[in-house]
């Protein structure tokens, strides 16, 4: 009798305590399958563990960073999912907090390569890599390395499609930095790279896509045969019914394209707990299997066919993100004046 009432009292206290502290935090996510995996693998375990609620806003990083910058004292977002270039803006404008193992114990499981490019203001949570996607019936012998691919456009071996400058933040890394790196040109010497692009364009064997999905439309409608694309997107498309599509990383390797998470300055401290749950082995495993992207917790094990498809972060090439953001205005301007005509 006595124990029962004690248990009852304890449970009342516990539930009262929980409800007193139950909090609603605001987190962001990319849309579609990405968001559904995010809810299932990250939000659900967090809510189960803490009794809190995490509200998800789908959208794009530039909208979130502006929303936070407009309300820095009382930001509408607590945990920010981001891309590399807008993450750099958030760091530069002082919109996010530095992240340490004290606040996020699971950060110890994340290799330093994933936090260093962010100077400790957040971490990569999953990544893809750019390579070449092509239609097997039209390109029987795809080029083995990147430079051969670009030269093949000029030689007229195939019609290629490349991401246009307006497709967004990944073009500068997957196309422009890639060319600078292959040609061994310093990032602020744009002439040689732009000349190369103009030569490709003038050959008549090059089209651009200015929207991620336009690439798939172009390959299917015969507008192009081969082109730069991202692994996860290509595999999803192939598995989804574009049978003739194949994907690989030409030498010297694919180019990483990371998704990032950051805790917003002046946002709820519950954000740290959310990030900690997100980085746990079980959450990360769940997420990688749902969306087909490699994740960052080093204990995660990938099943097939994921295991043979996903690259190691050591095999992909890491662009000089900081260097790129410095020369971006110049790159865009030069592109407009040469390739963009």
């Amino acid at each position: 009798m006595k124990t029962r009432s004690l248990l009852l009292a304890m449970s009342i206290v516990a539930s009262a305590g929980a409800s007193a502290h139950a909090e609603t935090i605001s987190v962001t996510a990319f849309g579609g399958a990405w968001e559904q995996a995010f809810r299932e693998c990250y939000v659900a375990p967090y809510e189960a563990a803490t009794g809190n609620t995490a509200e998800v806003t789908v959208g794009s990083p530039s909208q979130w960073v502006n929303q936070i910058a407009a309300n820095p004292q009382d930001p509408p977002i607590d945990v920010l999912v981001n891309l590399m270039d807008t993450a750099a803006v958030a760091i530069k404008d002082g919109l996010v907090d530095p992240m340490t193992v004290e606040q996020v114990p699971n950060l110890a499981k994340v290799p330093a390569a994933f936090t260093e490019p962010l100077q400790g203001y957040g971490t990569v949570i999953n990544f893809g890599a750019a390579g070449l996607g092509y239609m097997t019936d039209r390109v029987p012998n795809p080029p083995a390395d990147w430079m051969a691919f670009f030269d093949g456009i000029i030689a007229g071996d195939y019609v290629a499609t490349l991401p246009g400058i307006n497709v967004g933040s990944t073009t500068p890394t997957a196309l422009l930095w890639n060319l600078f790196d292959l040609m061994g040109v310093p990032l602020d010497k744009t002439d040689a790279v732009m000349e190369k692009l103009v030569a490709m364009k003038d050959s008549g064997n090059l089209v651009f896509y200015n929207d991620m999905n336009q690439y798939l439309t172009q390959l299917q409608s015969g507008e192009a045969d081969i082109g730069i694309y991202w692994d996860g997107r290509a595999w999803t498309a192939k598995d989804g019914g574009i049978d003739k599509l194949n994907f690989y990383y030409p030498q010297p390797g694919g180019i990483i394209s990371p998704s990032v998470i950051q805790k917003v300055k002046n946002g709820s401290d519950e954000g740290w707990n959310f990030i900690n749950v997100l980085l746990s082995k079980s959450s990360q495993e769940c997420f990688s299997q749902k969306v087909g992207y490699p994740v960052v917790n080093q204990d995660v094990v990938y099943p097939e066919p994921l295991a043979s498809r996903v690259p190691s972060y050591k095999d992909v090439r890491w662009p000089d993100f900081a260097g790129i953001s410095k020369v971006m205005p110049e790159w865009v301007d030069q592109w407009n004046r040469t390739v963009g005509r």
């Binding site: 990319f30 849309g31 579609g32 399958a33 968001e35 959208g59 991620m212 999803t236």
Partner: peptide, 10 residues
């Protein structure tokens, strides 16, 4: 929402 959806899933 449509934009966010189709950016990741077409």
């Amino acid at each position: 929402v449509m934009l966010a959806y189709q950016q990741n899933q077409f």
